[in-house]
């Protein structure tokens, strides 16, 4: 088959709802877009361990500490699922990690903001993870098998994260005046970065049409952002919390929420390495990798002594 015939057969498979596996023919652009998305997604999970990890030693109770430890461990696991999916298209683990450590790789904007208060742990769990769940539930139906399978696993674990975050925020909102103020302060700082997390508006997303036709994305950034607002705003208001957007209002005519303008220049700055904590996050990640070097060396040395041939793979 020549290229146009192959492409037509490929698109017909997608249209029938079939799932593509690594050995199947696929357009270069499909491979490129998926690699871009899966590697960014994997890096986001890995860097995502850091803002909350800082609170493990300061969690307000043993229960909260155990829950947070498990959550941060999950994020590390999610990174592994996604690196596995990215490797199915020929990326190597070394290349992926090197791209992250040298600052070439992009990852989610939200993890470059500071977490000065315990309420931030609640807000990340509720807002950021709910946003992630909406995006990932869509990707769990995407046309590329390894990505969809990774998303299925991640979604089922991510619902815990959202619940634990929401429970923290509800507890604060029902607490003392200081605790309620903490919750509102957390919301004030996380609201806009979470809305930015869905990406650029549809009018500025050059990939959307192609990604839709090839079944990688089935909803646009703006559609997902609106689903998020619709789900979360009534619950926030029930708790007496107000998103920091004076223009936010429910439009009875369309049955949807209207929000004020999102600062996409800020998104661009943060994603391109110039957010409040980008340098700190990257330095922490590199340090963690370097600090683990002795474990890797020990494993190799032990294996070489015991069975030199096994290391060859």
């Amino acid at each position: 088959m020549d290229q146009p015939a192959k492409l037509a057969a490929f698109e017909a498979r997608i249209a029938r709802g079939e799932t593509i596996e690594p050995g199947d023919w696929m357009p270069d652009e499909y491979r490129r877009q998926l690699l871009r998305m899966m590697s960014q997604h994997a890096h986001s999970e890995i860097v995502g361990m850091l803002p909350e990890g800082a609170w493990i030693t300061r969690a307000p109770s043993l229960k909260r500490k155990l829950v947070l430890l498990a959550k941060v461990q999950d994020e590390g696991g999610h990174g592994q699922y996604l690196y596995d999916a990215a490797e199915s298209l020929g990326a190597t683990r070394e290349e992926l990690i090197e791209a992250l450590h040298t600052g070439r790789a992009k990852y989610a904007n939200v993890f470059n903001y500071p977490t000065p208060s315990w309420a931030d742990v609640g807000m990340i769990g509720w807002l950021v993870d709910l946003a992630a769940i909406l995006n990932q539930s869509m990707l769990a139906k995407c046309s590329y098998g390894p990505y969809a399978r990774a998303m299925l696993r991640i979604c089922s674990e991510e619902t815990f994260h959202k619940k634990q975050g929401q429970e923290i925020v509800i507890t604060l909102a029902r607490g003392t005046r200081e605790q309620r103020a903490m919750a509102q302060d957390g919301l004030d700082r996380w609201w806009w970065p979470t809305l930015m997390q869905f990406g650029y508006p549809d009018s500025e997303s050059p990939h959307t049409a192609t990604l839709r036709r090839w079944g990688i994305k089935t909803k646009t950034n703006d559609e997902l952002r609106e689903m998020f607002i619709k789900e979360i705003v009534p619950e926030l208001k029930l708790l007496g919390l107000e998103p920091p957007d004076p223009e936010l209002r429910f439009d009875e005519a369309t049955g949807s929420w209207k929000h004020g303008p999102i600062d996409f220049d800020e998104l661009k700055r943060v994603v391109n390495g110039n957010g409040p904590c980008n340098k700190e996050r990257l330095a922490a990640r590199i340090k963690a990798h370097d600090d683990g070097a002795w474990v890797r060396e020990a494993l190799v040395a032990y294996n070489a002594k015991r069975e030199p041939s096994e290391v060859q793979g």
């Binding site: 229960k63 498990a70 815990f160 619940k163 929401q166 429970e167 619950e235 029930l238 708790l239």
Partner: peptide, 20 residues
């Protein structure tokens, strides 16, 4: 036996119902 791996440990629906 890790209770925090159990959805029932995060009764947000019941909590919201109470608040309502």
């Amino acid at each position: 036996y890790k209770w925090f791996r159990d959805h029932k440990s995060f009764p947000i629906v019941a909590m919201l119902r109470e608040i309502r």
